[in-house]
Nucleic acid binder design. Structure first.
Length: 419
RNA sequence: GGGGGAAUGUCCCGAGCGGCAAAGGGGGCGGACUGUAAAUCCGCUGGCUAAGCCUUCGCAGGUUCGAGUCCUGCUUCCCCCA
């Protein structure tokens, strides 16, 4: 960033927390935000019933926009989803039915409501869906009103296009048009809801600036662009993705405990970055935590996990996850809200192999994997290493409450409950 | 429309004279060391009622005692020519 000194709370907070990569006009946007007149949006795909941690940066951006007295718009890409976002070269981008998209939007809305206050008042956040206007577009009108403002020469020179062409990679016409649609969204919302700011990841810069341009050509008020640095973890992984899958934000897709664990397991090098972006702790407190060295960083990680989980799932759920983790990892005790799976008492009496029990608990996918883990000493029953793959799970393994703890490695624990 | 090439372990990349549960990476999982971190080292990485059996190399047939490998047809993708 430049040496620009923001006056607005909005830009000041974004800057000190490391959210800013590029902005089309710092001074202009700053003046707007200082008056509480910024109306900013970010677009989100409606391809899944929940967002994942990879979208958190953008969500926090909207959060701060609203917290600093401005208006936030979460735009669902219901229309662009019908087309399929081509920028990822992922194979299966099936067309979603309108029903799917509606269901996904409902799920995503739940997440947003944790970070934003929705409503109809001036400062309330709103959720829009570009299907509302994109699906009605007429090809000829579109060409005449919007298409004439786009220079193909310029589109070809944009990074997103140029790099593909240079590498001789195929780019479909639909993909080429994506930026037109996105620009149109921006200009359309400028006219209809007074939107004047679009934010997004740094890879969106070209598309956003195109929207700013289109607005000017179509005679809207001045539009602004703001992008965030692309976030990866210290080891280069995409934010929000683990080998097990995405870090979902909806509680029914990823439990608060697992969400807490995701942050607790952050690499040292990521802790500072995460504290600034994914918690709302005062900067002074963050600076104190950043100063911790060596094993003390674990304290910072616990604060990170608890604060990040609080934002999404509430203080109670976060504290409970922290307590479960403390019992499990520090005391080795049996904490009640570890993930649990029920087994019928009759099944145990009939003779349940330990291997099958581990499969049943969902710890390993097959008995073969269970055998392998036993060979390398990875499986434990009530904290005792399992060495006999023929062992049975007897009634004596369950404590007075009818609970037995099955573990693999240091971090994976599941409780079996007799029913 | 004509010509050429490709598809392998259900995460990815990739080797594979007719004897193959199939080399090697990456990733992942477990172990050791640590701090629920990183780095490093070691092991594992089709399924099952497990010294045995079953199912895998794009799909469907065929040749053969035996096919990922040879033959025929099909599907999909890529390249060149028109």
């Amino acid at each position: 960033m430049t040496d620009f000194q923001p006056r607005s709370d909005f830009l000041r907070i974004l800057e000190e927390r490391g959210f800013i990569h590029q902005c089309s006009d710092f001074a202009g946007l700053d003046a707007l935000a200082a008056k509480g007149e910024a109306v900013g949006y970010i677009g989100f795909d409606a391809t899944a019933p929940s967002l994942h941690a990879g979208s958190l940066v953008q969500i926090m951006l909207l959060h701060w926009l609203q917290q600093t007295g401005n208006k936030a718009i979460a735009l669902m890409g219901g229309g662009t989803t019908m087309v399929g976002d081509p920028s990822g070269r992922d194979e299966s981008r099936k067309m979603l039915t309108p029903g799917d998209i509606e269901a996904n939007k409902a799920g995503i809305r739940q997440v947003f409501s944790k970070f934003l206050t929705f409503g109809t008042g001036g400062r309330d956040a709103v959720m829009l869906d570009n299907a509302e206007w994109l699906l009605k577009l007429n090809w000829i009108e579109m060409l005449r009103d919007v298409g004439r403002h786009f220079s193909v020469n310029r589109m070809l020179s944009m990074d997103s296009v140029r790099l593909r062409l240079e590498r001789d990679q195929e780019m479909s016409f639909i993909e080429f048009n994506y930026m037109v649609l996105q620009s149109y969204d921006f200009a359309h919302m400028a006219k209809t809801v007074g939107c004047n700011l679009q934010m997004g990841g740094s890879d969106q810069w070209g598309n956003i600036v195109n929207g700013v341009d289109l607005g000017r050509r179509m005679g809207t008020h001045q539009l602004y662009a703001l992008t965030t640095p692309l976030l990866t973890t210290a080891s280069g992984a995409k934010m929000g993705k683990t080998a097990q899958g995405a870090v979902w934000l909806n509680a029914d897709m990823l439990s608060p405990y697992d969400y807490w664990q995701y942050w607790r397991n952050a690499e040292d090098a990521d802790v500072s970055k995460f504290l600034r972006k994914f918690t709302v702790l005062p900067i002074s407190e963050i600076i104190r935590l950043e100063a911790l060295q060596g094993a003390e960083i674990n304290e910072a990680k616990i604060v990170l996990a608890t604060e990040a989980t609080t934002l999404l799932h509430g203080r109670a759920a976060a504290e409970s996850a922290a307590e479960t983790a403390r019992k499990t990892f520090q005391e080795g005790a049996l904490a009640a809200d570890l993930p649990s799976v029920d087994v019928a008492a009759s099944e145990v009496e009939a003779g349940l192999g330990l291997l099958s029990a581990f499969v049943k608990a969902g710890i390993v996918p097959s008995t073969g994997e269970a055998r392998r883990q036993i060979k390398s000493g990875g499986l434990r029953l009530n904290d005792a290493v399992v060495s006999d793959e023929r062992a049975m799970l007897g009634a004596e393994a369950f404590n007075a409450d009818g609970v037995a703890k099955l573990s693999m490695g240091k971090k994976k624990h599941v409780l079996l409950r007799l029913t």
